[in-house]
Amino acid sequence: MGSVAFGAVGTPLGEFLVAVTEDGVAATGFRDSDGERRRIAARLGLDEVADEARTAVARAEMAAYFAGELTRFSVPVDWRLTSRAQRRVLGTLYERVPYGRTVTYGELAELSGSGVPARGIGSIMGSNPIPVLVPCHRVVAGNGLGGFSGGDGVESKRWLLTLEGYLQPTLDWEM
């Protein structure tokens, strides 16, 4: 059947959760709790196992990213929680929009060739099961930041884009 192991990393945005299957990182999230772990395991249809070794690389890379020391992840991605359309759009984002850059919802719709309109791209970003690793925070509106459903919403998006150097830090910004 398979299994999923969970680990968490302390970040300036709170405890960041990683869920790793035998194939790679299948889910991440801005909250770590037993309930969230159970929900992810149920969505995956997998049993939860305690396996710190399986999550070690993902946790180390997330810690390095949030410390401003990593600009490209090397951990494999397990796309099983995405539909075909989501996979096409999120895969394009993952492969083509690097650290410190952004793309608009409309531009991502065109880049992905998915046939999904810009509004649909926003829905796909909101349902991204692997935020940060698959960088939905890098997708912005044509007239501003747009929305963000992770962490503390748009403030978390603003923090991530500041970390990556896309936005200038404010006087109260801390890493």
Rank of each mutant, 00 (worst) to 15 (best):
G2T: 14
S3G: 08
F6H: 04
A8I: 13
V9W: 01
E15K: 12
L17N: 07
V18N: 02
A19P: 04
T21R: 03
E22G: 01
G24F: 05
R31W: 09
D34Q: 11
G35D: 14
R37N: 04
R37A: 06
R38L: 04
I40D: 00
A42C: 09
L44Y: 02
L46E: 02
E48P: 03
V49W: 00
A50Q: 12
A50V: 15
D51M: 08
A56G: 13
A56R: 13
V57A: 14
A60Y: 00
A60D: 06
A60S: 10
M62R: 05
A63M: 07
A64E: 07
Y65G: 07
Y65N: 08
T71F: 00
R72C: 07
R72P: 01
S74C: 00
D78Y: 03
W79C: 02
R80I: 11
L81Y: 02
L81H: 01
T82R: 04
S83Y: 08
R84H: 06
Q86E: 15
R87Y: 00
R87A: 09
V89R: 02
G91V: 14
G91K: 05
G91Y: 03
V97H: 00
Y99P: 14
Y99F: 15
G100L: 12
R101G: 04
T102I: 14
L108V: 11
E110R: 15
L111V: 09
L111S: 01
G113A: 12
G113C: 09
S114T: 12
V116M: 05
I121S: 08
I121P: 06
I121A: 07
G122R: 13
S123G: 13
I124L: 08
S127V: 14
N128H: 10
P135L: 06
R138G: 09
V139A: 11
V140C: 05
N143L: 15
G144Y: 12
G146L: 15
G146K: 13
S149K: 13
E155F: 11
K157W: 10
K157N: 12
K157P: 12
R158F: 06
L160F: 04
L163I: 14
G165W: 05
